[in-house]
């Protein structure tokens, strides 16, 4: 685990790290990933790949329904004329 990888991964996760943080996480991740190597020899199977118990065929019927009024939902949201205000996209 090198500095550049830590910076790259953090960047993709939208985190900006200080120099101290980069070093801290680099060291920690190196230690943790080293420990994860025990998985290389672990047995494995493809029985359940989503949940540890079977969760199957749970479907909702196509009935429109609104439990909470949209206005209630927007009460604490930073809005302008009902639009949610967001950062620059250009």
């Amino acid at each position: 685990m090198d500095r550049e990888t830590v910076i790259r991964v953090a960047r993709s996760a939208h985190l900006e790290l200080t120099e101290e943080e980069i070093e801290l996480y680099r060291r920690d991740l190196e230690e943790i990933l080293d420990y994860f190597r025990v998985l290389d020899d672990a047995p494995s199977s493809d029985d359940l790949l989503v949940n540890p118990v079977e969760v199957t065929d749970v479907l909702r019927s196509d009935e429109p329904h609104m439990e909470i009024p949209a206005d209630t939902l927007l009460e604490d949201v930073n809005t302008y004329e009902r639009y949610v205000r967001g950062p620059r996209v250009q």
């Binding site: 939208h14 949201v77 949610v84 205000r85 967001g86 950062p87 620059r88």
Partner: peptide, 19 residues
């Protein structure tokens, strides 16, 4: 955005704002 802390500078580019 949307809930919790929403007090950043929205004139920033979205990637930078989120970061």
């Amino acid at each position: 955005l949307r809930y919790g802390r929403q007090d950043g500078d929205l004139s920033m580019k979205f990637d930078d704002y989120f970061t």
